[in-house]
């Protein structure tokens, strides 16, 4: 890892941590004046995160899609960019960062502890344009599901204590937003699975191998399909839908982290010699 990347990475982590602290005071001590400062801190964090990714991309000569560290860094960027975009329209979403940022920091910390991969090129197994489509849609899908789950937690807290977390806005808006995020994430995940299947045909000779990671991805797709159908066909709203959004996210976590605990998976692209 280059020194410039290291400095930028630690600055990103510091900025995100600072944003959590500021949001904590803004939400729990009702210091609304801190919200605008927090927005600036978060935007700075995203800029630093982007710079870290750019330095990594330039120094490695390839997009950062290899190993836990690069995946965590890219996942953090996608999630924050999505939240920044949504935060422009639904101002209450800025506060969802209080739930999203700790998850991002934990993911980054865990990935850094597992060691940063060297700046080696991608192995021949990765040499396929479908990889980028697969990864791009995966991050957008997973980022949407994460934000939807955080909103689900807020809805559940509000269902128990209506006076709590008022800063996030009214429950109906949060509920609708959570639904839209799941719908968007579902579309992204569909493309992710489809592009992964096409890539797998080039790499392993078959579209689908019932590999554990594939199966978990399909499982999370099914669970979110269930969410959408229960909502549109059976009118699930509020706490019921929120529970489902939160529980469904556990399948995403297994798809993302579970691969590290599975020894025999096509998704472990070992070094070839």
């Amino acid at each position: 890892m280059l020194l410039a990347e290291k400095v930028l990475l630690y600055l990103t982590l510091f900025t995100y941590t600072l944003a959590i602290g500021l949001l904590f005071f803004a939400i729990f001590f009702k210091r609304e004046s801190l919200v605008s400062v927090t927005k600036k801190v978060i935007i700075t964090g995203v800029i630093l995160n982007t710079a870290t990714l750019l330095v990594r991309t330039v120094s490695a000569g390839r997009p950062p899609v290899k190993g836990d560290y690069e995946n965590a860094l890219t996942a953090a960027w996608f999630t924050m960019v999505l939240l920044l975009y949504l935060g422009r329209r639904w101002t209450g979403l800025w506060k969802a960062n209080i739930g999203v940022l700790p998850v991002i920091l934990l993911t980054l910390g865990w990935a850094m502890q597992r060691g940063q991969p060297d700046l080696a090129p991608l192995t021949p197994a990765y040499d396929n344009p479908w990889l980028y489509i697969h990864v791009f849609f995966a991050w957008f899908g997973y980022a949407s599901f994460l934000v939807a789950a955080i909103l689900g937690v807020v809805i559940l807290v509000r269902a128990r204590k209506p006076e709590a977390l008022l800063a996030f806005g009214d429950v109906r808006t949060l509920d609708e937003l959570s639904h839209r995020l799941v719908a968007f994430g579902f579309a992204m995940t569909t493309v992710m699975i489809a592009s992964g299947a096409i890539w797998a045909k080039d790499l392993y000779g078959s579209y689908w191998s019932w590999d554990p990671v594939e199966t978990w991805s399909l499982l999370s797709w099914l669970v979110y399909a269930l969410y959408l159908h229960l909502r549109t066909m059976f009118g699930w709203r509020g706490a019921k839908a929120a529970w489902l959004a939160v529980l469904s996210f556990s399948t995403v976590l297994i798809s993302f982290w579970g691969v590290n605990f599975i020894q025999d998976s096509y998704h472990i692209f070992q070094r070839m010699f």
């Binding site: 554990p212 199966t215 399909l218 499982l219 669970v223 159908h229």
Partner: peptide, 27 residues
């Protein structure tokens, strides 16, 4: 609605089988 209920039951069964697959029969 009955039809959707049936579809959901089938999907849940499928999901359970898949959990079975990744948990007990990975190979």
């Amino acid at each position: 609605k009955r039809l959707f209920q049936a579809t959901i039951v089938v999907l849940v069964l499928e999901a359970l089988l898949m959990v079975c697959r990744v948990t007990f029969y990975p190979q």
